[in-house]
Each structure stands twice: as C-alpha cells, then as structure tokens.
Write a protein that binds this DNA or RNA. Structure first.
Length: 282
DNA sequence: GCGACAG
DNA sequence: ATCTTGTCGC
C-alpha cells in the first residue's frame, strides 16, 4: 500500500531550532521544501472563502439555527499569524510575541498569543528560526482546529523554497499560505505598478532560488487599489506554504481580504500583536 | 568583489 | 519589526 501525500503527518522533528548553525538551518530548509506540498491538497471547501458572495449568502441563510450549533460551524477555520517584538530595559529586542487570530465565517472565534525569548537575529532567509518558536508556542494554546494558516511572510518565495509559512505549515501539517508585503526573491513576470484590485502577476524562480528557473513560486496579488491617480497601493506577495497551490493561494487571499489590503485574519493578528504587546510593558 | 535580502 | 503627527487627496 502506497502512502499518498494526503496521508502525511506533522513533522515536529523539522521544527525550527535556533541553536543550529547557518549551514544546518539551510540544510533543514531543504528538507522542509522536500516535505512540502506546493499544490492543492486540503480537505475543506474553499468556495465560501474564495467567493465573498457565496459567503455572505451562506451567512444570510442562517435563519434555521434551531440546532445548538453555531451558524458557521461548517465553514473552514482560517488562522492568521503575526509577530511583534518586546524590548528590554536595555533597549534590545529580546522577546518575540506571536499573535494568533482564528476566524470562521468571517467572525473571530479565538485569539491566543505567546511570548518567547529571541535567540537569533533577523537574517533574510532564516526568519522562521527567529520567530518560529513563538509561533509554535502560540499555536499550542489554540483550541480550535485550524483548516488554514495565513502567515506574514513568504512561503515558497524563498531561496530554498522554505519560507516561514512553509516551515510552520509542514511542521504542523496544516495547509498554509505566505503573505508578504515585500518580495524576498524571484522574478516578477510583469509590471506591478498600479494594478487593478483583484489582479495578479506571476513570480517565477530565478538564479537566487533553489528551483528550476521558471518555476511558479507565487503571485503579486492586488487586493485593494485606489480609484484614481497620484498614489497607489503596493501588491502583496502571496505564495504556497504547504498543501496549497499558487493559484488557490492567490484566490484565497483575495477572498479573505475585507476593506483593507491585508487578508482579514492577518490584519487582525497584526492588530492583536500590537494590542497584546502594550500589556507587556515591564 | 558585486548585488540582494520576508520580519 | 520599530521609532510616529501631520498631511495630501478623494
């Protein structure tokens, strides 16, 4: 009996270990990339998330809630994750605060956060080793079962195809998507200036990426845009984390975007990260 | 040596 | 990530 990828399991053994040397971290990332699935391989129905109209229609049809179940019980639980940092009395960032916001049917169903000591400086390409510990700790206290993770950072758009979204997604074996505000690597296949809302531009692997040149890594996605000239909003750089293909990742980010540029789960996690930080005033 | 770099 | 009010434009 062969074991399809749909039977893959969580890989706590591949968790980001900040005590590793750079070469070892990079080797671990290659293992992560090898274990990652960059195509649709999830068990929930993306329709209510991808199609805003269908979602609101479903919410409006919740008049027959005679049962003791919540209106959106059948909808996927999408979890947004973002970090903020706490400063020492000396003035140094010594702790990371990971904020997690779980949503279902457009409503926040749970919020949890965790704080851990920082053990590694920020190094482009090794972000998951700096923030991964706090993220995994926060996810440990989450009681709802996540169907999808949305991270603030890259997934496959990474030198070794193992950005933070891919790393955490593989360790937990939960479908995940990377949502970055700037491009780490790869080559845009078109102009991204003043894109219309709802449009996307492909991002392919170049020489800096450990993948065949031309490999589709993700998309520059324009969730929001100003109506007229002068100023314009930059796109988001969306890429597969784990078990989600590039096309679907872009569709989901567009569908989960509300009135703001960032998809709602991530925007609220960002907000919560700042809010929780204030209460940690030493 | 040159260039480039998520949060 | 973080330091942060006002300000330009619709």
């Amino acid at each position: 009996m062969t074991s399809p990828r749909s039977e893959s399991q969580p890989r706590p053994d591949l968790a980001p270990d900040p005590s590793l040397g750079h070469a070892e971290m990079e080797a671990l990332q290659r293992d992560i990339a090898g274990a990652a699935v960059f195509e649709d391989e999830f068990g929930f129905d993306p329709e209510p998330l991808t199609n805003p109209l269908a979602a609101s229609a479903a919410t409006a049809t919740t008049d027959t809630d005679s049962a003791a179940d919540s209106p959106n019980a059948s909808q996927p639980t999408v979890v947004g994750v973002d970090q903020s940092f706490l400063t020492n009395e000396a003035g140094d960032q010594d702790r990371a605060l990971s904020a997690v916001v779980a949503m279902r049917g457009g409503e926040v169903v749970e919020r949890v956060h965790a704080v851990t000591d920082l053990k590694t400086p920020y190094i482009p390409g090794l972000l998951s080793f700096r923030e991964g510990g706090a993220i995994l700790a926060a996810l440990e206290s989450l009681t709802v079962e996540p169907d999808l993770f949305l991270f603030d950072g890259s997934g496959r758009i990474h030198f070794r195809q193992a950005g933070i979204a891919t790393h955490i997604g593989v360790v937990r074996d939960v479908p995940s998507i990377g949502v970055a505000k700037s491009l780490l690597c790869g080559r845009l296949q078109g102009d991204t200036d003043n894109l219309s809302a709802g449009t996307r531009v492909a991002i392919e692997a170049d020489d800096s990426v450990d993948a065949p040149a031309g490999t589709l890594l993700g998309y520059a996605v324009q969730t929001r845009q100003y109506d007229s000239p002068n100023r314009y909003i930059n796109p988001l750089y969306v890429s597969p984390g784990h078990r989600v293909g590039p096309e679907t990742a872009a569709d989901l980010v567009l569908g989960l975007a509300g009135s703001y540029k960032l998809p709602e789960p991530v925007r609220l996690a960002d907000q919560y990260a700042s809010e929780a930080k204030r209460e940690f005033l030493d």
